[in-house]
Design a protein around this nucleic acid. Structure first.
Length: 442
DNA sequence: TCTGGGGTCCTAGGACCC
DNA sequence: TCTGGGGTCCTAGGACCC
């Protein structure tokens, strides 16, 4: 993609065809909106969705935001509001959210030449080649269609860089006058927006940098762009300079859709802390098995396996221990038995009696495409044996894909039931997927 | 009692080589 | 003995994102 910001200002629209324009489509309060799509009684109410184990708030309706409920608030601090009936709560239901996300993305994908799915609820649409006067009508049409067909409210910000797209998107969300779509394609438009954007709201400026910038008198995005580049480099490093340029219409953040993830992590907190080696072994095996399945789904193999376990960091009265052990494999693999046994060996090495483990996980890294795996000179397993392990894993994937395992996992998701060690006391049904009928049985 | 999970990129510093 | 200086690789930690 070729982009030159100067074209916009210096040459007007004659060169507009060479200009990349991003339209950032972002679902509003996505998890809450998914719950509302099937439970209209949640409409207009203060609603929050909780993390795994009903630990803390990960999504809020506008009404909940207006009550000053912060992202990450622990659930137990909301008891009063919930008891009074002013706040409604749902456990997270990732099967439902993943399904609705696919439906939203499919509608977007059909409408534009190219797009990058950035997260479960966001995508950068590339409007290259679409005449400028059609941008807004096209995006308004998408907002309307997604609301009608999937029931999810979406906002779209259009701008020459991703960071400005985020800024425009915030405006589209905040002011109903935009009808869900805000166009910030010229400097006069985005400069106005930057003056109204607090520095901490800028994409790429996190909770550590924002206070530092404010103490230097940088309170808005416009204050930030007014600083010299050298100042930004000195105080924020190269990533800060990128954000600084992006806010001025100079695109620095490339679309790089990483086909293969470089590392994959599967970890959980436990509803009840684990104190025995056998019990933790079971969970570590699960996590390692999930990592192996994710690798195969990506078409990757991992050259490294790591395991970590953690005691409850909030319990300062208990002994703390946070081991993290890693091991290189003689050759990259993605079959379940080898990943599991490597993880269990690491866990055994790290294990210490006398601690209550609250969280643990398995991480696989150094991924390579599975068809480019190089055999190692000192590989402990013969090609024939590995071939057999790989075939077993392929069969497991097949079984898991067909209803068997899925049903098993789904069955554990009934409200209040946590056979997999995860607490989900306020979970909605799986409304949109095929086997949802099975779940309505209480 | 109860505080998520899964990623990426950058930088500084140590080890090692010539 | 002098203990320089550039390059590379690795690792740990920090910061950010959703």
């Amino acid at each position: 993609m070729v982009f030159c910001s100067a074209n916009l200002t210096n040459f007007g629209e004659t060169l507009a065809i060479f200009v990349t324009v991003y339209a950032l489509a972002d679902c509003n309060n996505f998890f809450v909106s998914c719950e509302r799509a099937f439970q209209p009684e949640l409409e207009g109410r203060a609603v929050v969705v909780l993390s795994n184990n009903d630990g803390c708030v990960v999504a809020r309706s506008n009404e909940a935001k207006a009550m000053d409920i912060a992202m990450g608030t622990p659930y137990f601090k909301l008891g009063k509001l919930v008891d009074s009936g002013r706040l409604l709560v749902r456990s997270s239901n990732y099967t439902l959210y993943g399904d609705l996300s696919h439906r939203v993305m499919n509608i977007l994908r059909e409408a534009v030449p190219d797009m990058e799915v950035y997260s479960i609820d966001e995508a950068f649409l590339n409007l290259e080649g679409i005449p400028r006067e059609q941008w807004v009508p096209l995006c308004r049409g998408l907002v309307k269609r997604i609301r009608q067909w999937v029931g999810i409210p979406v906002s779209i910000g259009i701008a020459p860089t991703k960071t400005l797209g985020k800024v425009a998107n915030h405006f589209a969300k905040k002011y109903p006058g935009y009808q869900g779509v805000c166009l910030a394609d010229t400097p006069d438009k985005w400069e106005k927006a930057l003056k109204l954007t607090p520095i901490g709201d800028v994409w790429g400026i996190g909770w550590r940098s924002a206070p530092k910038l404010q103490s230097s008198g940088v309170n808005t995005a416009a204050d930030f762009t007014a600083k010299p580049e050298a100042w930004v480099l000195k105080h924020m490093g190269i990533t800060g300079v990128r954000t600084w340029k992006e806010l001025q219409g100079i695109s620095c953040i490339e679309d790089e859709e990483p086909e293969r993830r470089q590392s994959i992590c599967t970890s959980r907190s436990f509803a009840e802390p684990i104190t025995t080696r056998d019990e933790l072994s079971l969970r570590i095996s699960d996590f390692a098995g999930i990592c192996a399945a994710k690798l195969r789904k990506d078409g990757s193999a991992a050259g490294e396996v790591a395991v970590f376990m953690q005691t409850n960091r909030f319990r300062s009265d208990l002994p703390q221990y946070y081991p993290f052990l890693r091991k290189r494999l003689p050759t990259a693999v993605n079959n379940t038995p080898e990943i599991v046994s490597a993880a269990l060996a690491l866990m055994d090495e790290a294990w210490k009696d006398g601690y209550a483990y609250k969280r643990a996980g398995v991480l696989v890294g150094e991924t390579v495409p599975e068809d480019e795996v190089q055999g190692a000179l000192f590989d402990s397993m013969s090609p024939e044996d590995r071939d057999r392990e790989n075939r077993i894993s392929a069969i497991m994937d097949k079984v898991n894909r067909s209803s068997g395992k899925t049903l098993l996992r789904v069955a554990t998701q009934r409200p209040g039931h946590y056979a997999d060690g995860i607490r989900r006391e306020h979970c909605s049904n799986l409304y949109s997927t095929d086997w949802s009928e099975l779940l309505t049985v209480k």
